[in-house]
Amino acid sequence: MSNYTELSIAKALNKGMAKAMQNNPKVITFGEDIAQLGGVFRVTEGLLAEFGEKRVFNTPIAESGIVGTAIGLAMRGYKSVVEIQFDGFVYPAFNQITSQLAKFTYRSEGSLSMPVVIRIPYGGGIGAVEHHSESPEAYFAHTAGLRVMSPSNPNDAYWMMQQAIESNDPVIFLEPKRRYWQKGAVNLDQSPLPMHSARVLLEGKQVTVIAYGPMVTTALQAAEIAKEEGISIEVVDLRSISPIDMNTVLDSVRSTNRVVVAAEAPAFVSVASELAAAISEQAFYHLEAPVLRVGSFDTPYPPAKLEESYLPDADRILDAVDRVLAY
């Protein structure tokens, strides 16, 4: 009998971090406001009390410093889980992430490993001010040496966090902030899947909708509506954005022959674009229609009063579903 419990995504992430810290005394966590406050989203709440100020501490408000020191700590044998407070605040650390953290194992010909997890609450839909709603995954997925992942539900949040910390490579861990409070059952005993596996969340016959992070819930809503209209959608949760589990993706494509990729990020030069290209290259004769991308627009993230029109929703996914079915 597995031990299940009902948790929010935020709480599941918290429990996943605590588990990893219990298992390995070299795991430490730091960032802006993560100690007494527990982070602005309370994901690290209670960790200071459990693990003490040597393993859970606040830093100066200096993102390059947070990532740069995590690199030095990795060289000293520590596994740092650092929090970047919001997606739009990660860019001051861009050099340390892409030119340093991502490249040290290569530069050192394997003498150094870089087990650093960078947690970033990301995505929109919470009515926030500028720089608090962005989807920066393409920058990091484009960088060799990094792994990028994003859970869509509490069970994955709990287990993927532990897998990211377990990894010997740097992981950009993107947390779907507008889903932090979404609840679900968490199996505390058994990991659902290996770290980089995608998963068919909902089986369907006519169209595959691929999504990750916050857009998975939207894709499931779209499938629900479509079902009422007699259209059978299969939903694939990518889970890992880099590397991508192409086997699971291609199996689904071969069974439905029609694909829509949905993500919050602007579609131009995006993870959705990569999926469209890879599917076209690897499953061309299985496709009855071009792979369609449903993303946000190639503009800066708009003021909050406009985000409802900016972000893809279930209707925009269904519009694309109708278009691939029209072929």
Partner: peptide, 13 residues
């Protein structure tokens, strides 16, 4: 970039 790696290493020490 190395100044921050050194700072992190020194924290670990």
């Amino acid at each position: 970039s190395q100044a921050l790696h050194a700072a992190g290493y020194a924290m670990g020490v």
